[in-house]
Amino acid sequence: MFLLRLEQTINAFSDWLGKISAVLFVLMLFNVFYDVITRYLFNNVSIGMQELEWHLFAAMFMLGVPFTLKAGGHVRVDLIYEGLSVKKKALIDLFGTLTLLFPFCLLVAWYGVDFARESFELGESSGDPGGLPYRWIIKAVIPFAFFCTFISGVGMMLRSINTLNGHHRSDDYIPTQH
């Protein structure tokens, strides 16, 4: 089944983004901790390290969005949804990805490309002393993450189609677990 295999490939890609985000988070945690310690104990401040905090933070949550989509972590209002059959749920997801998620992600990604490209062409860097150069990298995370969310959405769409074709059983549904 080509569609099933494609869905699996896309899911693997989304999981991989999740792993990268997790690593980014750990780096961010120790980055902030390091900055606090060096400032308080050694009276030493690095603007570059301080800026790195939000670079890691931003990349972490932006790349986390497609991963979370695949992992079923985005909140739904389940007043009606929860009582529906698997096929009806799949229909809603198919409809939602096609009419809401795809256009939103693609449009933001589209404008995000120009946004990052201009920063690249200007050679934009931080305006503060000792700040980080190459501002375009973090700006490029916007189109990249939105494009990845679109890809992850394709996975969701395929999953809906495969479910409608009877290739997933109800117990395939992974509820959010923490």
């Binding site: 989509l69 985005h74 909140v75 739904r76 209002v77 389940d78 007043l79 009606i80 949804y81 929860e82 529906l84 749920k89 809603i92 997801d93 409809f95 939602g96 009419t99 809401l100 998620l101 256009p103 939103f104 449009l107 933001v108 589209w110 404008y111």
Partner: peptide, 27 residues
């Protein structure tokens, strides 16, 4: 109420109304 993830309902609905009223460049 249909139960699609909240984040993308906000984004998607904003997209259709925004594009309808002001064109895609708003985005």
């Amino acid at each position: 109420l249909i139960g699609f993830p909240v984040a993308f309902i906000f984004g998607g609905v904003a997209l259709w109304f925004g594009v309808y009223a002001e064109g895609p460049d708003m985005f």
